[in-house]
Structures are given as structure tokens and as C-alpha cells.
């Protein structure tokens, strides 16, 4: 848990270094001031680095304090729940344009419901997944004219 808590400031520091390096390597402009596009990102990423370091020091000091929400993250099935939800979401993104809206949405919504609501309520899950996907397909594609795959 301590590792996770200190992970955030470290992540932010890495992020700002990434942005800083990226900003310094931006191509120069052929028109006007060649450094025009660089000033702002460099300035922002430098400030981000400074504030991330301050945050890192602040966090180091109170590393031993408890954080309820983070405790929650490591209790019970929560880490698995969040991880799998994100995996499902990635799967949905990959499937969306290949399998079409209706099919991929039923699968995605159904899978999420089985995961979160539990397999015991499979009837509710199935009904909600099918009906809700169909309603949203109808509303968006037919009524609003949004071209869904």
C-alpha cells in the first residue's frame, strides 16, 4: 500500500519528465518565431515537474497515514473487479467497429453485469443487456441518425 501511495507522485514526476523531453524535442516552426510552439509546453511541463516534486516530498512525510479509499482498493475482490472492468472496456473498444454496435454492446454490457451484479441474477443481467443495448441502438441510430457500425 505504501508503494502505491508513493507511486502517484513518482508517476507524476515521470509524466512531467516525459512531457518535458517531448516538449524540448518538438519540431521548430518554419514560420514566425521558430520556438513559438515550444515555449508553452516547456513551461507547463517544467512547472508540472516542480509541483510533482513538491507533492512527492509532501507525501513522503505522511506516508504512514491511512487513506480509506486506497485501503478499499486492496480489499476483497475490488482490485480484480476494476482490472477486469478495464479489460472488458478494452475488449469492447477492439470489438466495436468489427462486430458492430448491437452485438458488441450486448456482450459488453452482459459481461459487466455478470461481473458486477453477479451470475446469480443472470435473468436480470440478460434482460437488461439485451433490452438496453437494443433501446440505445434504436434511439441513437434510428431516431437521432447517428451512424453506428
Amino acid at each position: 500500500m505504501k508503494a502505491f501511495k508513493i507511486g502517484m507522485p513518482i508517476f507524476l514526476i515521470l509524466l512531467s519528465v516525459f512531457f518535458l523531453v517531448g516538449s524540448l524535442r518538438l519540431p521548430k516552426a518554419n514560420l514566425g518565431n521558430p520556438y513559438g510552439p515550444l515555449y508553452f509546453p516547456i513551461g507547463v511541463s517544467l512547472l508540472l515537474l516542480i509541483f510533482s516534486i513538491i507533492y512527492f516530498i509532501q507525501e513522503l512525510r505522511k506516508l504512514t497515514e491511512d487513506n480509506e479509499a486506497i485501503k478499499e482498493l486492496f480489499s476483497g475482490r475490488t482490485p480484480k473487479l476494476i482490472g477486469i472492468t478495464i479489460l472488458f472496456a478494452i475488449g469492447y473498444s477492439l470489438l466495436f467497429e468489427r462486430a458492430g454496435f448491437l452485438l458488441s454492446s450486448i456482450v459488453f454490457l452482459g459481461a459487466l453485469l455478470f461481473l458486477i451484479n453477479g451470475p446469480k441474477k443472470w435473468i436480470t443481467n440478460l434482460v437488461v443487456a439485451v433490452i438496453f443495448s437494443f433501446i440505445s441502438w434504436y434511439a441513437f441510430s434510428e431516431m437521432l441518425g447517428v451512424s453506428l457500425p
Binding site: 472492468t85 472496456a89 454492446s105 459488453f108 454490457l109 459487466l112 453485469l113 458486477i116 451484479n117 453477479g118 436480470t124 437488461v128 438496453f132 443495448s133 440505445s136
Partner: peptide, 10 residues
């Protein structure tokens, strides 16, 4: 438990 998956889809 039903609402959150739906929000995600939306």
C-alpha cells in the same frame, strides 16, 4: 450494480 454498467455503456 445495474446502473453503473449502463452508465459505462452510455
Amino acid at each position: 450494480k445495474v446502473l453503473y454498467p449502463i452508465i459505462l455503456l452510455l
